[in-house]
Write a protein that binds this DNA or RNA. Structure first.
Lengths: 235, 235, 235, 235
DNA sequence: GATGAATGAGGGTTCATTCAT
DNA sequence: CATGAATGAACCCTCATTCAT
């Protein structure tokens, strides 16, 4: 307020460094076609950006970090996504869609019984998580808005994922392969959580470095041995 | 005015805490320095602040949000915590210490067998989570520092919690109450994760409002029926 | 703005720790009379506070620092000075008044010739500076308001100090003890500056630790040998 | 909006610096990366910022004051200096380096005797101070860290400056042009101080506006007449 | 179309000042 | 009267967003 006379006139700091020319032969347009595709460029950005968001929280990743990884200008980013949040949302959505497609494929297989499907789903999920850890870590730690209530989209994603597992369990119960005395959803929720947690936490590495690999099989067994019909076989 | 005259705000928060009569005998005033007042205020802040941190991430909660909830001035907050991070850390630590104390108490009980202890631990944990949901939601979604690697303190907390459960499972295995063919740590990790997830996510409420209560018992049964010796008894 | 609903209600953090009673015998009023004097208390504060302001800038000294040194409460300070700036101004003023009184005393001596007076003034000033370094460091580094233009009060102080020296030089010129071909004010300004700088900067201590004592005599000689009548003696 | 939508300001500072024709041949655009633009902007800021720091202390100058003077946005300042302290340090350093270079040039001259060099140094310094008053006022009133102890860098600057003068005096003593009975460093310190003070304080302007010009010559004479061999020549 | 310099709202933090106790 | 808990304006700094180039 003291010196707030601030003349609205122009300042002198503008600089216009254009570096060396981009186009060696004007009119030649030696463009690689697959990058020119708008959607493909988006996906390229999404894939690489997921790396950053997986390692740090939304607010911890700056646009400067992003463009450094992406190798593009800040303004360019805004051509593909209207803002940072949209890029973030896209990352999560792509991850979900891919994983759900994978689970759906297994779900539809006719050459497998429910037990095999559960095994397969668990291993596929674990495998997928290992390949795309970044995105799924993003998904695991995504932003809740209100108390105990995550964003609608996130909840829907989660419901779809768990529902896919639960559906198999239900099939197993109908076919009397699994015990009927438990809630398929609760089972699916618990199993998924256990797998996810094991994938995300680097836990227990102190015991045996060789065991650092995800113990997916053990977890699935833990669950299936408890619910399978075979436990009743002795009866 | 010359040397920066700041006009501070007006104190308007009349202390309404008159607890335990200040002056027993007028003129006597034998007051204990009343350090507990300070600690009490800290705890009060911790408890209310957890509300916000439970609903949003660390970076999403601003001091302005906090003081709005707390009904205190910004400077006041700094009398009780040296900065935002310390307040946050305190929230998490308090939660951990309390929960661990609870589990430890059960762990030491001599009038319970491992099965009962597991049940009790699960229910106590669920109950405690329900009472202090905010703080434990904070703990569940806490800030990771490096990719896939949470802060040392958080990892320690987590290890202690799970170790407490695992220890009971080991006891059960030694006493041949539980099957010996699974890793107690993996079991404990999976069980804890399942309970936690159930407590924190408001999930599946669409099916049956009456079922919105936490299905702790079902989860414990899911796990115990799968691992308990009794399932092999018939054999 | 998001959550700015801030209920104007009272909060709960007030605490009223009164520690042990101040008055052992109510009504006895065993007050030491010399501290009760308002002006004396002010001076007491001024003297001790100068210590802090000498070591750090005005803005670097906080009220918390001050009350820690003074051993009084923050509110008490405001009974003796209406704000921080007034305390600061008082420190500088007291310093000036004291030094000026000292110089004035020498100025009025009738048993000394100008040369002796200059010597005496220089040594008195140096001695005084050493005793009250704090206050005079404050004065040396006081706050200028506008470019090249220190506060009116500070300029007046400075003018009075230098004028006192210049007056002696003029006397010497009139008595033809000093050469008439230089400006008494410029001389006084330069001499004072040299003495002050030597007193304030811890300079050249690397050469000889024993020489760290102020080289007042050398400085005065430097000036007097250049202006004394003895340079005219050969004539 | 969900994930913090900040509305940034609108860029309104059209760069008017079109220096030296950007495009010699349209389409050719052989531009040097133009790093000098950055440095030029920095220097521009340094020069103007010195204005403020000369008039007020470091802590008294706020970023808002600075950007008001500079006519740039707050964030822009941080593109050129990593923080306020760095800007301040740069101001002082630039001033020191420039002044020292000037003195060094005179110091190395072979066509001058020590007396002439001292005169020249004094006048060059006074002239330089007049041109860059702001920066040198900053240097004169710079920030002390500990009581009586200025920052290492500042001390080094000061030592270098005074050492340059003292070195000339020593030469003069060796060549028996100056009297050998005084400390070159003390002399240099006193002379420098006198010049500096005269340059910085607007003093004595009440007597004669015409005399407001710096009385560099008089001061140098004051000192040289006291030390020159010529005063002893008559003896 | 791509770029990044410029921007300023908003972040966490400090501290002179007030006033209930 | 002395106290220090409470206060909030103002500090320095960050970074998502814009737009001239």
């Amino acid at each position: 307020m003291v010196l707030r006379g601030k003349s609205p006139g122009v300042h002198k700091l503008g600089s216009s460094k254009k570096r060396e020319m981009k186009k060696t032969f004007p009119g030649r347009a030696a463009r690689i076609p697959d990058i020119s595709d708008f959607e493909e460029a988006r996906n390229h950005i999404v894939e690489r950006a997921a790396n950053l968001f997986a390692g740090r929280r939304y607010d911890q990743v700056t646009l400067d970090d992003l463009i450094a990884i992406l190798g593009i200008g800040k303004g360019t980013l805004y051509r593909y996504f209207s803002n940072k949040a949209e890029l973030y949302a896209r990352i999560v959505e792509v991850g979900h869609v891919n994983l759900l497609a994978l689970l759906g494929e297994i779900h539809g297989r006719e050459d497998m019984n429910p037990t095999e499907k559960l095994h397969e789903m668990a291993f596929s999920m674990a495998h997928f998580l290992r390949l795309h850890q970044d995105i799924y870590t993003v998904m695991a730690i995504e932003e809740p808005k209100e108390r105990y209530c995550r964003s609608d989209k996130m909840i829907r994603y989660r419901t779809e994922r768990i529902g896919m597992i639960a559906s198999i369990v239900e099939q197993g119960q109908e076919k009397q392969i699994f015990r009927p005395d438990f809630d398929p959803w609760l089972f699916a929720q618990s199993l998924t959580g256990a797998l996810w947690v094991e994938a995300i936490f680097p836990f227990r590495s102190e015991v045996d470095e060789g065991k650092k690999i995800l113990r997916t099989g053990e977890i699935v067994s833990l669950f299936l041995d408890g619910i399978g019909m075979k436990v009743q076989a002795p009866a």
